[in-house]
């Protein structure tokens, strides 16, 4: 039954993907990407990967559409059709597909307990997590503690990506400068202030979105969730505020220096936990020495690095959003 659900969702997914490639209207492509994301999240969920599904939901539900539209405002709405080299790329795709299909013949069946991936380190993680870390969500234990190095690397990838986007979009110093054009353009930056229904409902929901983000952050040890998802959800809440009241207001609420501080501070906080481990006589990112009881130390360490990840992700996403919006004004 699980397989049937997954196959059905994957079929819809493949159809959507083909449609995204086929359409030349970029706005339509953005809409279809939204559907793609929803299908992907549902598919992850059906396959029991709730943490990944929550990540897809947190990013795909709001932020990616907002960022795509921000990019679309800077460019033309129709894709330029490419004529040359079509057959060559088609040939490459066909050959790659055939190779990949051939490779799947060697793959173990889906969910086979004797597959190498279930024989390598996974049983050790499952066995040792209750004993060493004492939290129910093994995914959080793996991401936060056992593979802490990888997560640290990912946080720095996010920070680097944020810096790269800011460089490309060329954000100027200083905040929002009102348009010299006077009345005619003032509504351009004011968001949906004149739409009563979204304004009332949105204002009502923003606190709950942020609260839910914090719940995801601090509940990540028990249920699906963690710093990345929390950062994205909280960023969505603030972007909602920017949509409702204008980007300038949001920038006033969370100014750019604060965003930069979040990005850098979050990544630094993560690194500092690692260094603190060394200072207290353990090794880098070994949380056991952070408290008297190694298990408590592990839990404390995971919580702090999740906060760091959340800060870095939230700051990065908001910086990128503001960079697009600022670029759109000029």
């Amino acid at each position: 039954m699980v397989i049937l659900f997954a196959v059905f969702l994957l079929t819809l997914l493949a159809l959507t993907a083909v449609a995204i490639v086929r359409t030349e209207n970029l706005f339509v492509a953005v809409m279809l990407t939204g559907i793609f994301s929803l299908l992907m999240a549902a598919n992850f969920f059906v396959l029991d990967a709730a943490d990944v599904a929550l990540t897809e939901a947190a990013v795909g539900a709001g932020i990616s559409t907002v960022l795509f539209l921000g990019a679309l405002a800077l460019t033309a709405e129709h894709e330029r059709s490419v004529v040359s080299g079509r057959w060559l790329s088609m040939g490459i795709v066909v050959v790659t597909t055939l190779i990949l299909i051939y490779a799947t013949f060697d793959k173990p069946r889906l969910g086979d307990p004797r597959a190498p991936v279930h024989q390598h380190v996974a049983p050790w993680y499952l066995d040792q997590t209750p004993e060493l870390i004492g939290i129910p969500n093994v995914v959080t234990a793996v991401l936060g503690s056992f593979r802490g190095y990888d997560t640290l690397g990912e946080v720095f990838v996010v920070v680097t990506a944020c810096i790269g986007v800011l460089f490309i979009l060329g954000v100027r110093r200083g905040g929002y400068s009102p348009s010299p054009d006077g009345d005619r353009l003032t509504t351009a930056g004011s968001g949906l202030r004149h739409h009563l229904i979204p304004k009332v409902v949105g204002r009502l929901l923003i606190p709950f979105i942020v609260l839910f983000g914090l719940y995801v952050l601090f509940h990540g040890e028990y249920g699906p969730g963690g710093g990345f998802q929390a950062g994205a959800i909280i960023a969505t809440g603030i972007i909602l505020y920017a949509l409702l009241d204008g980007e300038a207001q949001a920038l006033k609420a969370v100014p750019r220096p604060v965003l930069m501080g979040m990005v850098v501070g979050g990544a630094t906080l993560y690194g500092a936990v690692g260094v603190a481990g060394i200072a207290l006589g353990g090794s880098f990112l070994d949380y056991s020495v952070l408290a008297d009881d190694p298990v408590k130390g592990q839990q404390l360490g995971i919580l702090i690095i999740e906060v760091g990840v959340g800060l870095a992700v939230c700051g990065s996403l908001l910086s990128i959003f503001h960079a697009f919006a600022a670029r759109g004004r000029h």
Binding site: L192, H195, I197, P198, V201, G202, L204, L205, F208
Partner: peptide, 13 residues
């Protein structure tokens, strides 16, 4: 509650 708030809002928008 969230769906009953957001779904009509989205339709309005």
């Amino acid at each position: 509650v969230c769906l009953l708030l957001t779904s009509p809002t989205a339709s309005y928008a």
